[in-house]
């Protein structure tokens, strides 16, 4: 049986990831100096910027895996009843795509960094538009629920149930 709401831990993990992803998107050049050195065949350089980008990214990955474990174990509440089927499909796809990005983007970043691979680095850079599009769509959907449907969906990510 699906739980009635998200647990406190699930809610905390949902919101903690938001500033972490934002930091790596906004301060994307933190890792630039170190990466240029790797590209020129030098040893990996762990300056403050590289450590910050990698630390934040690995945190996103670990927290996303933890959340996935909770989702598969405890479960998540059913989508609001009465939403048209197409909307339910979109919500499911959107949520799984967010998980895929939270896991895929840092994993590819790690593989680029430790493997010194420029191809993987370019793939990793795609993470930026992917996150922006997915999160923009996600936030638009949340606002739609709040303002147009007025079904109180937002409250589910604020109060544990």
């Amino acid at each position: 049986m699906a739980p009635k709401g998200y647990s406190r831990l699930q809610i905390a993990l949902h919101w903690v990831v938001l500033p972490l992803i934002a930091v790596n998107l906004v301060f994307e050049d933190w890792i630039e100096t170190a990466w240029e050195q790797v590209e020129h065949g030098g040893p990996a350089l762990y300056d403050a910027g590289a450590l910050a980008h990698i630390g934040v990214g690995v945190a996103v990955l670990v927290l996303a895996l933890w959340r996935l474990g909770l989702r598969l174990g405890r479960g998540v509440p059913d989508l609001p009843a009465g939403n048209p089927p197409l909307m339910r499909v979109a919500a499911h796809l959107g949520h799984w795509a967010l998980y895929a990005a939270m896991i895929g983007v840092p994993v590819v970043g790690l593989m680029a960094w430790f493997g010194g691979s420029e191809d993987l680095a370019e793939l990793h850079e795609l993470g930026k538009p992917v996150f922006i599009l997915l999160v923009a769509g996600h936030v638009a959907a949340a606002v739609w629920h709040q303002v147009v449907l007025k079904d109180g969906l937002m409250a589910r990510m604020k109060r544990a149930g």
Binding site: V58, L61, V62, A64, L65, W66, L68, G69, L70, L72
Partner: peptide, 8 residues
């Protein structure tokens, strides 16, 4: 990373 994979 094992920290994240353990719960799974």
């Amino acid at each position: 990373l094992a920290l994240g994979v353990t719960p799974l």
